[in-house]
């Protein structure tokens, strides 16, 4: 057994950390709420190659595995970067049979989003705001691509680029695409869970750092068990989420039959782990953590939105139970 990242993945994660720290931040996430652009934005992600990590080399991508992408996505999550690599990964699965679209996805020449119908409309979809090319599944189970108009609501977390879409044109890319669509959604759930892992880890680190410094009643607040145990529970959740994210991302390429169970387990756990970490982060900071200027609420916003995207915990727990009872645990 070797359940660990390889040296190449560790290097990729370190490089991604440097890139994201230099190009996105909670501050940028706050500015996006105030009308600024989402950082680092599609172009920067395309230029560094992150949109094409799982796109084949023949189409201009890196031909990497989902695990290669997940370790990068974790670093993006840590600084609340956008657009989500979940969108790129989901689209890469869907356009596997259309190399020219894959190439446009990877080099950023098309701003792609994947919309959850019913078409021609959609429910709020990730990174749809600002996208120019939309992928969807129509009522007949066909994968379609087209242009459309995106209508965002007032953002709770602006970095997610959520908008409802009405397609104004569409053409069929593939008939009978239900299974492909399901796999793409599972892949996206894994990547979103990876971003949540990074965000939850960052929120716990922030809260731990504060608890090591802040004094009350004559001593540092991290010494109080009420505070300490809350942070430990949040950290244990993060540590366990990392295991599920790695397993699910590995399964996507190495053991596809395990992906549905692993993806739902990771997404369900991610929703709750990030929420717990972000709420603990606000709570440990006290009044300052409840201010607009502090970063804590930006992680809290990410938690409150992400937990509902690509299926909430209730949906994924139900899927886990159904799959397990049907024999997915072996």
């Amino acid at each position: 057994m070797n359940f660990d990242l390889g040296p190449d993945q560790r290097d990729a994660a370190a490089g991604a950390r440097d890139f994201y720290r230099g190009s996105a931040s909670p501050t940028a996430a706050r500015e996006a709420l105030e009308g600024g652009a989402v950082a680092p934005g599609r172009k920067a992600l395309a230029d560094i190659g992150f949109l094409g990590i799982t796109v084949p080399e023949s189409a201009g991508g890196a031909g990497g595995s989902l695990l290669d992408l997940a370790v990068v996505a974790e670093q993006g999550g840590a600084v609340l970067a956008g657009p989500s690599l979940a969108t790129a990964a989901r689209a890469a699965v869907l356009v596997a049979g259309a190399p020219h679209l894959a190439a446009q996805l990877a080099d950023g020449s098309a701003a792609v989003a994947v919309v959850d119908g019913p078409l021609p409309g959609s429910s709020p979809s990730v990174d749809a705001a600002g996208a120019t090319l939309f992928l969807g599944l129509d009522d007949d189970g066909a994968l379609v691509v087209g242009e459309g108009e995106a209508t965002p609501g007032r953002p709770l977390d602006a970095t997610r680029g959520l908008a409802s879409v009405r397609l104004t044109s569409r053409r069929v890319l593939a008939e009978d695409a239900g299974q492909l669509w399901a796999r793409a959604r599972q892949v996206a759930a894994v990547v979103l869970a990876a971003e949540d892992l990074g965000a939850a880890d960052a929120a716990v680190q922030m809260a731990v750092g504060y608890a090591q410094q802040r004094e009350a009643f004559g001593r540092r607040i991290g010494s109080y068990q009420a505070v300490k145990h809350m942070l430990v529970d949040a950290w244990v959740g993060v540590d366990q989420l990392r295991s599920l994210v790695w397993w699910a991302a590995w399964a996507a390429d190495a053991a596809p039959e395990e992906l549905p169970l692993a993806a739902s387990a990771a997404k369900a756990h991610a929703a709750e782990v990030l929420e717990r970490a972000a709420e603990a982060c606000v709570q440990v900071h006290g009044g300052i953590g409840f201010t607009w200027e502090h970063d804590a609420h930006l992680y809290w916003r990410r938690a409150k939105v992400d937990r509902l995207l690509l299926g909430d915990a209730a949906e994924h727990l139900d899927a886990v139970a159904r799959l397990a009872v049907a024999g997915a645990l072996g």
Partner: peptide, 17 residues
């Protein structure tokens, strides 16, 4: 199924950790 799903996720998270 919610209760079973929750138990399975917690068990797998602990197992893979």
């Amino acid at each position: 199924r919610q209760a079973v799903g929750r138990a399975v996720v917690a068990s797998l998270a602990t197992r893979y950790t």
